[in-house]
């Protein structure tokens, strides 16, 4: 594939402005150019005020999540030419407070885990007795979730209420239940189930599964939410029949 010119229509907003707008840029894209690289090219050569988040460039960090032509993607692994469109519409992810241009404030997203004492990095079960390098307290096990927020952006329920815990936090809760780790695993699992068992927890989901569709890391938040419900439904029936206290 040869180099082609594409029109980028980019969401723009700066603190203090009355309303966001869209700005158009022309960018040359090679066969392997990603949306993130194209945006960086715009920053380098056309408009240094364009603000975006990124880090690893290989779908590990989750920081470059955005909406490209209306779909939530990691821009670092989204090929411009493979989009098959002359115009590439680039917008920040939805349902998370906007900071500027393509950057959103992920603070509230992360607090969902902290509020529930939900570990999004946990002690490794693989190297519990390993000698630790100076400066770290313990080896940690990386979860699949990149904390990119794409699932939150795509969820239709998140689009109507900020009270809903959301697919990422609920998937994290299911991990605590499904893969108990550490000394306090039983109590953590109980706390997680209690945390999600309400109208803004796993019962708020309306089974659209868009979270699972857009997840770049196969976390399957929709499946996790249904697994939480199955667990809680079974428990409620057992309690109803007095088979469990």
């Amino acid at each position: 594939m040869a180099e082609v010119e594409r029109t980028f229509r980019v969401f723009r907003y700066k603190q203090g402005q009355a309303a966001p707008s869209y700005q158009t840029f022309k960018v040359k894209a090679g066969p392997r150019t990603t949306v993130l690289e194209a945006l960086q090219e715009i920053r380098r050569t056309q408009d240094r005020t364009l603000i975006l988040r990124h880090s690893c460039h290989h779908a590990s960090c989750g920081t470059c999540g955005m909406r490209v032509n209306g779909q939530e993607v990691l821009s670092c692994v989204t090929n411009v030419q493979e989009l098959g469109a002359e115009t590439v519409l680039v917008e920040p992810i939805n349902n998370i407070p906007l900071v500027a241009d393509l950057v959103v404030d992920m603070g509230g997203f992360y607090e969902r885990y902290v509020d529930a004492h939900m570990p999004y990095i946990r002690q490794s079960e693989f190297e519990p007795d390993a000698d630790l390098p100076e400066g770290i307290a313990q080896y940690t096990r990386y979860e699949n979730c990149l904390e990119c927020g794409l699932c939150v952006s795509a969820c239709p329920v998140m689009g109507s209420t900020s009270d809903y815990l959301g697919p990422a936090a609920l998937a994290a809760a299911w991990r605590v239940v499904a893969e108990p780790r550490g000394q306090d695993a039983g109590r953590a699992a109980e706390a997680a189930l209690e945390w999600v068992d309400n109208e803004n927890g796993c019962w708020r989901c309306h089974v659209a599964y868009e979270c699972t569709e857009v997840c770049p890391s196969d976390v399957d938040p929709g499946g996790s939410i249904m697994a939480l419900r199955r667990k809680l439904t079974g428990r409620k029936f057992r309690r109803l029949l007095r088979l469990e206290r």
Partner: peptide
Amino acid sequence: DVRPRRPLRAWFDVRRRHMGS
């Protein structure tokens, strides 16, 4: 201020969405 939640749009704008939506 600039990006209010739009429930109707979130529910019914199914462009680029999948079967579940």
